[in-house]
Nucleic acid binder design. Structure first.
Length: 504
DNA sequence: TCTGGGGTCCTAAAGCAA
DNA sequence: TCTGTTGCTTTAGGACCC
């Protein structure tokens, strides 16, 4: 274990919600909830204003709406978040080549390996500068944890939230960890937490006192050893920059359970195709096909089949998935279906033995082997073209975003990341002057010299108030192309207005 | 109106081979 | 030849993470 606190963990604050607030001035300082808007959606991220009402990640949307009926409810825009995330990751890689992203909004950085820090003081400096740079480049805030190990750096950033920095001085680890709940340790979730509580263990201190043998007896070998080490603040895991993908999967939860066996088969085939598209997009193939079925009662089962060699042939995956489906009972209905491929290989080695009888493994030519195209099939009602929260452009009124749609109308708020809160107007859904638009950068790209570190779009109090509807003319750079209409938008059918941006 | 989507890792049982 | 041991692979499920 190193002796200097030179491992940095960055965690962006309420990332999805903060991005939406930065791009929509009327939502700043308001409760914002990002997640699936369908009847079975859950919260992906809640802004801190929404958390005051008790809304948090993974909560069913319905419950969130009951707790915070006046919050703004938005569909996630992954393409936009990805592009912001890349900006942040670039800043991290400027500090060190050893950057380990954990998700779009989180990463470890080994400052020592990059020569960016060697002791507590230099680490603090690097952390402070990073936070300032992130704010300048993205307009967003992130929290930083600094410590001598990954586990502690992560706990430190948790402690620093929101918008702060915490450094754990080497030597003080056990004292700080001791009184805390076992739940702060990575790998202790609801099940393990319960298990330990029944054994009379609730704090990290008690975990350490229980002893290694007892923990192994309680939780099994791997988990027991790992947890005991964590309890003693021992964590030797190094920051690893490149991790190989182990599996690729896609799944859909349906708004209403599917009972029709034929329809189930059709959906499985569709998922298999989508999965293969992703597989090929990453230049991979795989040997093991996995079918996942969640039944009406939420019981989940998986069936898998391992082929003799890796494949990226849609027909082969489709057929394997269909065979697997034959072995599961779907009476009562299914709420979720998924198809995955694991046992991955670089797909250069062309399918030596074609798996499907008589199936030419070669019709690779078609799809553009990149991102998934938007799905045309979703029988989306009127809202299809106007997902709530997405950007639009009006021929006369300029840039805005969809606040809600339904009943043949779409409500748009006209504002940009650099304007003040804007006005709301309602149009027929087929208004020819209205077109979907790409998101604008959160920070106006060429910053005027001498403007200091306070970019126009910094989400926070005291937003400058230019005349409502003022248009920042967007520099086209740094914007994700073809904004992610693809990803997932669960369509919502709502009365105008109820798609509910916070009533300003 | 209960409970998403994309992953990772671990365990245990069963089959098979040496 | 029979039996027991060991170890690897496949399969299914569960916990956890963001």
């Amino acid at each position: 274990m190193r002796t200097a606190p030179t491992i940095l963990h960055l965690d962006m604050d309420a990332f999805f919600a903060s991005v939406e607030q930065a791009s929509k001035p009327s939502l700043r300082g308001k409760a914002v909830v990002v997640g699936g808007l369908g009847p079975r959606g859950v919260v992906a991220t809640a802004s801190y204003e929404a958390r005051v009402f008790g809304v948090h990640s993974a909560m069913p949307m319905g419950q969130a709406r009951r707790l915070a009926p006046n919050a703004a409810y938005l569909v996630p825009r992954f393409e936009l978040y990805r592009s912001i995330s890349e900006q942040v990751m670039r800043l991290l890689r400027a500090l060190s080549p050893l950057v380990e992203p954990l998700s779009l909004d989180e990463a470890f950085v080994d400052l020592e390996a990059g020569g960016a820090a060697w002791d507590a003081d230099s680490a603090r400096l690097a952390g402070a500068k990073l936070r300032a740079d992130i704010r300048a480049v993205t307009g967003l805030t992130g929290s930083v944890g600094l410590a001598a190990s990954k586990m502690l750096a992560k706990i430190a950033s948790e402690e620093a939230k929101p918008d702060g920095m915490v450094l754990i001085e080497p030597g003080t680890e056990r004292a700080m960890l001791g009184p805390k709940s076992v739940r702060i340790l990575p790998g202790v979730g609801p099940a393990t937490g319960d298990h330990l509580r029944r054994a009379g263990i609730t704090t990290v201190e008690e975990l350490a006192e229980a002893g290694e043998d007892e923990l192994v007896r309680l939780l099994g070998k791997a988990h027991g050893h790992a947890l005991y080490a964590m309890a003693l603040a021992r964590d030797e895991r190094s920051v690893v920059a490149e991790r190989e993908t182990k599996s690729v999967s896609v799944e859909d939860t349906y708004d209403v359970d599917i009972h029709d066996r034929v329809r189930v088969g059709v959906e499985v085939a569709r998922l298999a195709d989508r999965c293969v598209r992703r597989l090929r997009g990453s230049g991979l193939s795989g040997r093991t096909i996995v079918l996942k079925v969640r039944r009406y009662d939420f019981s989940t089962l998986t069936r898998s089949e391992t082929l003799r060699g890796p494949t990226d042939d849609p027909a082969v995956v489709r057929e394997a998935a269909a065979r697997l489906l034959d072995s599961v009972d779907t009476t009562g209905g299914v709420r979720l279906l998924g198809v995955g491929v694991s046992g991955l290989a670089d797909y250069t080695q062309e399918d030596l033995f074609a798996q499907a009888a008589g199936e030419p493994a070669e019709e690779h030519a078609e799809e553009p082997a990149g991102e998934e195209p938007a799905e045309e099939y979703r029988p989306g009602p009127v809202g299809r073209r106007w997902p709530s929260g997405h950007d639009v452009r009006h021929a006369e009124l300029g840039h805005g975003w969809v606040q809600g749609s339904g009943l043949g109308r779409v409500t748009v708020r006209f504002e940009t990341p650099y304007s003040g809160p804007g006005r709301v107007r309602t149009f027929p859904v087929d208004d020819p002057q209205l077109t979907p638009a790409d998101p604008l950068p959160l920070v106006e790209a060429p910053r005027r010299p001498g403007e200091g570190g306070a970019p126009a779009a910094s989400a926070g109090a005291g937003v400058a108030e230019p005349p409502a509807g003022a248009e920042g003319v967007p520099p086209a750079s740094a914007v994700p192309s073809a904004a992610g209409v693809a990803e997932q938008e669960q369509e919502q059918e709502q009365e105008p207005g109820s798609a509910g941006a916070a009533t300003p």
